[in-house]
């Protein structure tokens, strides 16, 4: 097992290096930072000074080395727009996205797995067909459209939920982790908890539809695979009820592929967060990057993309390792 983990971690190193190379190239391609930094005070001499000061006169591989060094040291530069370090902005927007993504994943798993199990248990029935059509529609739905429809129906017409943001005006939550729902529980702030949960509900639901549909489809096909195997026939033959066969014997094995899919969906959740956060004015990383793109704030785009991609790679690593831990066949091949 240790060998497997070490090998798997070693495999991610070139990928991580590739990501930094990409974000480094990104800065190079977006052009000369002189104009952005100097603005109206631009003169060729001042530009030359800046180039020397930031090492832009060095050959590319030296520059990349320096970039790697500062990045590994936790310095992602400063936002051109706000002049604040990118890392300190990240500390605010990152937890918001994590909270949204975790809530969406929770909803997706809680809805997707039962839906898949029921569809498989009643294979080829109307229930099965209905569940799979619902799942297909879920996969095909643009998340930004669903978000707007939810805002219209549930927030505007019925007034059940707020339309945007993370907290109502006047409600305060003591920040510990940056996940407001969790923080308010830690601080025993039940008003804050209720308010944060209310704000989280719609964006999390909108973001969860596609992963829920994918989880349901994978659960169904994994269950169908398992239900066709001999040991299930044995379990049935010894007189176990169908419920026990499914819950105790089939589900445990069928959940293995589901674990992988749940992990892979993290990438989707991060992508979807970009659109969902825009709709619900959720102050997370996705909206932060989109805003930075429209205002041409290169260090923010660069740092944000780097962090997004790194999180994705690390999550995939964790998924692979947990998969090997759950299924011994993986680690010995």
């Amino acid at each position: 097992m240790t060998g497997f983990i070490v090998r798997r971690i070693a495999l991610t190193v070139p990928v991580l290096l590739g990501i930094t190379l990409f974000t480094f190239a990104f800065l190079k391609v977006t052009g000369d930072p002189c104009a952005a930094l100097l603005g109206e005070r631009y003169t060729p001499e001042r530009c030359e000074q800046i180039r020397v000061r930031y090492g832009l006169d060095q050959p590319p591989h030296v520059q990349y080395g320096r970039y790697l060094q500062t990045t590994l040291g936790g310095d992602l530069g400063r936002s051109i727009l706000t002049r604040r370090p990118v890392t300190s902005e990240l500390k605010i927007v990152f937890p918001a996205t994590v909270e949204l993504a975790l809530a969406a994943m929770l909803i997706a798993v809680c809805a997707g797995i039962p839906l898949g199990v029921i569809a498989a248990a009643r294979h080829n029935s109307a229930v099965d067909l209905g569940a799979m059509v619902v799942a297909l529609v879920g996969v095909s739905m643009p998340v930004f459209w669903l978000g707007l429809m939810l805002v219209y129906a549930l927030a505007f017409k019925l007034g059940w939920f707020p339309t945007s943001g993370r907290l109502s005006a006047g409600v305060h939550v003591e920040v510990v982790t940056g996940l407001y729902v969790l923080d308010s529980v830690l601080g025993r702030n039940w008003d804050g908890f209720w308010d944060a949960l209310h704000h989280l509900a719609l964006p999390a639901f909108a973001l969860s539809t596609i992963p829920a549909a994918i989880v349901a489809r994978i659960t169904r096909s994994a269950m169908l695979d398992v239900l066709g195997q001999d040991y299930i026939r044995t379990a049935r033959a010894k007189g176990l009820g169908e419920r026990a066969v499914i819950a105790r014997h089939a589900l445990a094995n069928a959940l293995l592929p589901v674990v992988t899919v749940v992990g892979l969906q993290t990438g989707f959740l991060l992508s979807g967060a970009v659109l969902t956060e825009t709709i619900f004015a959720w102050p997370g990383m996705g909206r932060w990057i989109v805003d930075a793109i429209s205002s041409n704030d290169v260090p923010v785009v660069q740092g944000g993309v780097l962090v997004f991609a790194t999180v994705f790679v690390v999550v995939n690593l964790v998924v692979d390792i947990s998969y090997a831990w759950l299924d011994p066949r993986i680690r010995f091949t």
């Binding site: 990928v15 590739g18 992508s271 979807g272 993309v305 994705f312 995939n316």
Partner: peptide
């Protein structure tokens, strides 16, 4: 490896980065 690096970016994010460029 190049493909792995591309897959390491959530799809919309990579598209965003390309459009930003």
């Amino acid at each position: 490896r190049l493909m792995d690096v591309m897959l390491a970016f959530p799809s919309i994010l990579l598209a965003l980065a390309i459009v930003a460029l």
